[in-house]
Amino acid sequence: MIAIKGLTKEYKNVTALRDLTMTIAQGDIFGYIGPNGAGKTTTIKILATLVKPTSGHAEICNYNILTQPDDVKRVIGYMPDFFGVYDDMKVWEYLDFFGAAYKIEKTKRRKIIDDVLELTDLGEKRNDFVEALSRGMKQRLCLAKTLVHDPQVLLLDEPASGLDPRARIEMRELLKELRNLGKTVLISSHILTELSDFCNTIGILEKGELLAAGEVSAIMDQIKGARIVEITLRQADDAPRAHDLLIAHPEVTAVEIDGADLQVEVPITCDDVSFINEALTTSGIRITSFRESEIDLEDIFMKITKGAVQ
C-alpha cells in the first residue's frame, strides 16, 4: 500500500531523512514514532506530495508520489499536526468546500457530509460556525475533512496533539473506528501508550534514520531478547533456596534476588513458563505473585533511541 525506497531529504544544512526504506501493507495501522526533529513530519509531507524528496521515491497504492501526484492525492487523506481552519464558515460549508476541492459531484456531497459528520460525532454541529467549535471538535472536523473523499490511506501527523484527556480518548476511539473500516493509517504521535492500543506495526525514527520497523510484537521480542518472570515470595528467607532451585533448571538462564522478589530469565523461545511455578510450589516455597514482565512501546522507544535530535 505504501512503499518507500531510499527516501532522503536534505534541507540547507540538515539531512531530515536519510535513505528511508519501508513498506506498510494494506489495512495496517502504522505507528510512526521518534523524538522531535527525527523526520516524521518530513516523511508524512513527502508522502502527501507537499515536499519533494532530495532523492529516493515512494509509492502509495502503486502511484508514484513524484510522477503521479494527482493520483496520490485522490487516495490519501492528510491531517497535519498544526493546522488552521476557515473560521467564518459553517461546519457543513467547510466540508462542502473540501468536497468540491476533491471534485466530488454536488449532488453526492450532501450525503457524504452527513456520513462523515456522523462518523466524527459532529452531526449536531452541522450548522455551527467553525470558530465556535472547541479545539477537540476542530480536530475532529479536520479528520472529517480528511475523510470526505473516502481515501484509502490516512496520513495523520500527531492527530491528538494539544487535546485534553477526554478529547484525546474520543480521538482514539475515532481512530479505532477507522481501523475497523479497513483504512491504512500512518500515524505519528508522541503519546506512545495511545499508539500501542491500536497500532499493529511501528517504525522508530531518529535523526532521519529508521532504527526499527515491523510488527509491534516482533519488535518487542527482538528488544526483549528473553522472557522475564517476576515472582514475589511470601517469605524473603526462601529467596536463596528458590534461587538455587531455579538456576539449576536447564530452561532458566538467570535469576536475580531483591529481598522477597525474584526475576527469572528464560529464553524467548520458551513457550511455557509454568514450570517455574510448579518447581517452587512442589519445593514448599510459597509465592504471593507470579507474572511475566511485559514491555510496552515506551520501553521499546527508550531502548532503541538515544534521545539525539538534529
Binding site: 502527501a48 506530495t49 507537499l50 494527482d70 492525492k73 485522490r74 490519501i76 492528510y78 497535519p80 493546522f83 473540501f98 476541492a101 476533491y102 471534485k103 475533512k145 473523499h149
Partner: peptide
Amino acid sequence: DFLQVTTL
C-alpha cells in the same frame, strides 16, 4: 497545505 493535498 490542505488545499495542496486536494485535487484542486
